[in-house]
């Protein structure tokens, strides 16, 4: 059965966006990522114009991340205090990122910088998470016991010396509020440059830089993504008129269910297993991007507008 999409001006089989939503929602619930870096290209492949695909994806992420945040909140996996600090930082970073893009566009090399940043960030994050998770699993198998806490490194001591120390009880960590604020700005900046929600960047930052437990990371990341996507959806609808509500409705039918199922599955997996799966996903996207960038395209012309999601 087909449905006509009023803003995308195209017709799709109802089952396809529902299935896409289900798959990406599952990943969202599992890993705490919005899934825009997967969903937007898939929607474009379905024949949705790039600008509509990116904007509508933000709209459906609102539903998936609400569903996921709600599920993780009931499991006690959302650190609202940490999420709020990251959110404030991310908002500032996003504003700076938009200005940075304007400068790049004026210089004429925005696309080059964006794509290169995308590939580098995905490659670095994916490789590091993969290597670290494999090492952690091996270590655990070898020792059969939890690793003893390591003595504080020089970097850790430096972090502890920063002012405005704050205890984040849910995450079981104490940091200067400047630290998550700084990383929020950093992720917000990169997310704006790359045109993505930033979940796949924020998750490693919370795991490796803020030392938060993986399950709390997933819930907190979804909380932050929810607010980002509410803002992006409204701006896209208001300024660009590119949100297709019918498409978003079909996607969210799948993604809200997927996010719940993902949360249940995630509960059954260990932190390292979650990290290694996310790393494989991120590396697969990196390989796909590198292939797209290096193989000669069929057409040397493409539609203007849109971003990587």
């Amino acid at each position: 059965m087909y449905i006509y999409l009023p803003v995308a001006h195209t017709s799709v089989n109802i089952l396809i966006p529902i299935a896409l939503g289900l798959s990406v929602g599952l990943l969202s619930g599992l890993f705490g990522v919005g899934g825009g870096f997967l969903m937007t290209p898939l929607l474009i492949m379905l024949g949705i114009p790039p600008t509509v695909a990116a904007a509508t994806d933000s709209n459906q992420i609102v539903a998936a991340s609400t569903s996921g945040t709600f599920a993780h909140w009931r499991l006690g996996n959302v650190d609202f205090k940490m999420g709020s600090v990251l959110l404030v930082g991310g908002f500032g970073g996003g504003l700076a990122g938009v200005q940075f893009i304007k400068v790049l566009k004026a210089m004429g090399n925005a696309d080059f910088v964006i794509k290169l940043t995308y590939v580098l960030m995905l490659g670095i994050v994916g490789s590091y998470m993969f290597a670290e998770s494999v090492a952690a699993i091996r270590r655990r198998k070898k020792e059969h016991v939890e690793a003893a806490p390591k003595p504080d490194s020089r970097f850790t001591r430096f972090l502890k010396s920063l002012p405005f120390q704050m205890e984040f009880q849910k995450s079981g960590v104490t940091h200067s509020v400047l630290l998550p604020g700084f990383f929020g700005v950093f992720v917000g900046l990169l997310a704006a440059v790359m045109g993505v929600g930033g979940g796949f960047l924020l998750v490693p930052v919370m795991v490796y830089m803020l030392r938060m437990p993986m399950h709390v990371v997933v819930g907190t990341s979804l909380f932050q993504i929810l607010f980002n996507c509410v803002e992006v959806t409204f701006l896209q609808a208001y300024t660009n008129h590119t949100v297709d509500f019918m498409l978003a409705l079909l996607l969210l039918v799948g993604s809200t269910l997927g996010a719940q199922v993902g949360t249940i599955f995630g509960r059954k997996l260990k932190g390292e297993q979650l990290k290694i799966l996310l790393a494989i996903l991120v590396l697969a996207v990196t390989v796909k991007m590198i292939t797209d960038l290096t193989l000669t395209p069929d057409l040397l012309l493409g539609p203007a507008g849109g971003h990587g999601g």
């Binding site: 569903s67 996921g68 959806t233 969210l252």
Partner: peptide
């Protein structure tokens, strides 16, 4: 669009 998404998320 945002309201429906939030409601659907909470509903599910």
């Amino acid at each position: 669009a945002i309201g429906v998404s939030l409601t659907a998320g909470f509903g599910v």
